[in-house]
């Protein structure tokens, strides 16, 4: 196995394109190193993207926010301004692993590992994030949910890699939140995750809402009916009950070592409601 640490996007793309399927993009390594050591994968080359400036920056422009793919959870947590704008996204990334893992695990890595249970993904989907993808044919952007195909797989062409994630600066009265369920207080993989972003009208009713769930289907997915349930409404018990039902109906989970179909379906509704209450409260303050 080779280890390369290019300093430009072009050099990284060239290395990846030349190596083909045997190359893997390497950032925090908290998933990849385990997969290599457990012989689940045997890459011929690791392309470490941490020396590429664009993957390491968080840029807060007037209308757009860019988070580099190899920014770590710990770094995101220390970015007070970002945390104020997208507390849900930051909290989601910060839930990944221990503080030790936080020092290494990156937002891009969490996304590219393509686990259905990845914490960052429902939060990114809820906040309408787009991924900036560089490749042999230049750079493209895509809604993050459109890149998800199935567990362990993204729709990236050979030689493509994710450079950063873009978020629009949230309009007034917008708030986001992410919650997950794990059986312990820390250190587990999400059994269910729920990310929510809401924008409120001046009268306190819902102007826009996105609710996304993790760990309940082959990929993180949007609760499609959420806007129908929420738009123009206040957050009362009836609306919450409808949202819970819609969230549960969105689930297509499996039974595995981390949870059952029944449990995931039920708890998805609970978490969607708990998350929207937090997001709503944040929106009222923003």
């Amino acid at each position: 196995m080779r280890y390369e640490a290019p300093e430009t996007i072009e050099a990284a793309v060239a290395l990846l394109a030349a190596a083909g399927k045997t190359a893997r993009v390497f950032a925090g390594g908290t998933d990849l190193i385990i997969q290599i050591k457990e012989e689940m994968i045997e890459p011929g080359m690791l392309v470490d993207i941490k020396k590429i400036k664009e993957t390491r920056e968080v840029i807060l422009d007037d209308d757009e926010i860019r988070i580099g793919a190899s920014v770590t959870g710990a770094e995101l947590g220390e970015n007070k301004e970002l945390k104020k704008l997208f507390p849900g996204v930051v909290e989601a990334v910060q839930l990944i692993g221990s503080d030790q893992v936080q020092g290494r695990a990156t937002i891009g890595g969490n996304f590219c590992n393509a686990s259905p249970a990845a914490d960052s993904v429902p939060a990114l989907i809820a906040s309408g994030a787009k991924a900036v993808v560089a490749g042999p044919n230049g750079t493209r952007t895509a809604a993050v949910e459109d890149l998800l195909i199935k567990p362990g797989q993204l729709s990236l062409a050979p030689g493509e890699l994710i450079i950063s994630f873009c978020l629009s600066r949230p309009p007034k009265n917008t708030g986001d939140a992410y919650l997950r369920f794990i059986p312990r207080s820390e250190m587990d993989i999400a059994v269910v995750g729920a990310g929510v972003s809401v924008t409120l009208n001046p009268d306190g009713t819902c102007a826009a809402a996105r609710v996304a769930l993790g760990a309940v289907a082959p990929t993180a997915r949007l609760v499609e009916q959420a806007p129908d349930i929420l738009l123009g409404k206040e957050l009362d018990e009836r609306v919450l009950a409808e949202l819970a039902a819609a969230a549960s109906a969105t689930c297509q989970p499996i039974n595995d070592k981390r949870g059952t179909i029944k449990f995931r379906t039920s708890v998805a509704g609970v978490l969607a409601c708990r998350a929207i209450k937090i997001a709503w409260e944040r929106a009222e303050k923003n």
């Binding site: 280890y3 390497f26 390594g29 190193i33 690791l46 030790q100 893992v101 020092g103 290494r104």
Partner: peptide, 23 residues
Amino acid sequence: GSGDCGACTVIVNGRPVNACLVL
């Protein structure tokens, strides 16, 4: 060897990390 126990915690460039998850 998988970042779950913390016994190999060291500090790299000021941040605590699992030495088993750094190359």
